[in-house]
Structure formats: C-alpha cells, structure tokens
C-alpha cells in the first residue's frame, strides 16, 4: 500500500515545495529538515542538464517505454531528477528551457493508489 510513503511527500510532489535557509537564503530541493529551513515553493522553471531515453524499464514502468528521464537545473539553484513529457526525443536538446507540470507518475497496483507528481516539459 505504501500510502504514507507517498502522502508525506505531497507538498514536494504536487507543488515543488522545497526549503529556504532562514539565514543565508539558500534554496534546497528535496525539502530539508531542521529549524534553520523554512518551506519554499519553487517556480518549476529550469534548464535541461542531461537526459536519457529508457527502453528497458523497471517493474511499475513497463507500460511507459520508451520514456525520457532527465536532470533539470532549476532557476533557484537546486537540480532535480524527473521524467520529460509532452515532447519527442528528437526535439530535446541539452540546455533547452523546461517547466514543471503535474502528471500521473505511477499506479501502485491492486490497491488503486495513483501517484501524481512533477514531470518537466518544454516551455510552452
């Protein structure tokens, strides 16, 4: 079921909520724990650092192949790993501008838990 595992990440998954350091202003994602950090919602804007096209998927993603995974440099500073969506591999280049969009990430199976969260797409 793993309901709590996904529920506790809801702010990060649904609205890209990370953390801002209270004294030096550093922005972090995933969110950090501790009194020196406060919640901070990132813009979802970034630039593609690198990507790959997955043809041999792990369990749970078999039905999605081929799909693209990427590392995105977010404008606030942190980097993030996520899937690329709404584009074809032939249109993708390192350095292109991308933005966050909320999509279905997976389905935990018979218990019916649908996992939503961030993917990235070319800036519209």
């Amino acid at each position: 079921m793993e309901l709590a595992r996904h529920w506790r990440q809801r702010n990060a998954r649904y609205r890209l909520e990370g953390s801002r350091h209270r004294s030096d202003g550093t922005i972090a994602f995933p969110p950090r724990e501790g009194n020196e950090w406060e919640p901070y919602v990132l813009s979802g804007q970034g630039e593609l650092l690198t990507y790959a096209v997955v043809h041999q998927a792990p369990s749970g993603h078999e039905g999605e192949v081929p799909y693209m995974v990427a590392i995105v440099q977010l404008v606030e500073g942190p980097r993030i790993t996520a899937q690329l969506t709404d584009c074809d591999a032939s249109e993708v280049t390192i350095g292109m501008a991308v933005e966050m969009t909320t999509r279905l990430l997976g389905d935990t199976g018979a218990d019916g838990l649908l996992l939503y969260g961030y993917k990235f797409r070319p800036v519209l």
Partner: peptide, 27 residues
C-alpha cells in the same frame, strides 16, 4: 532493473522510473 535501481535515491530518483543504465546514459 527494479532491484538494481534500489541503489538510486528511492523517493527522488527511483520513483521517477530511473534505472542505473539510464543514469549512466545521462552521464
């Protein structure tokens, strides 16, 4: 692939369908 991918960061890489092979491919 899923068992191998357990050595990636589960919540912030593995959940997104990353495999070790795809991470080496990104590099």
């Amino acid at each position: 692939e899923a068992a191998l991918a357990l050595t990636t960061d589960g919540d912030w890489e593995g959940l997104h369908g990353v495999t070790l092979t795809s991470q080496w491919a990104m590099l």
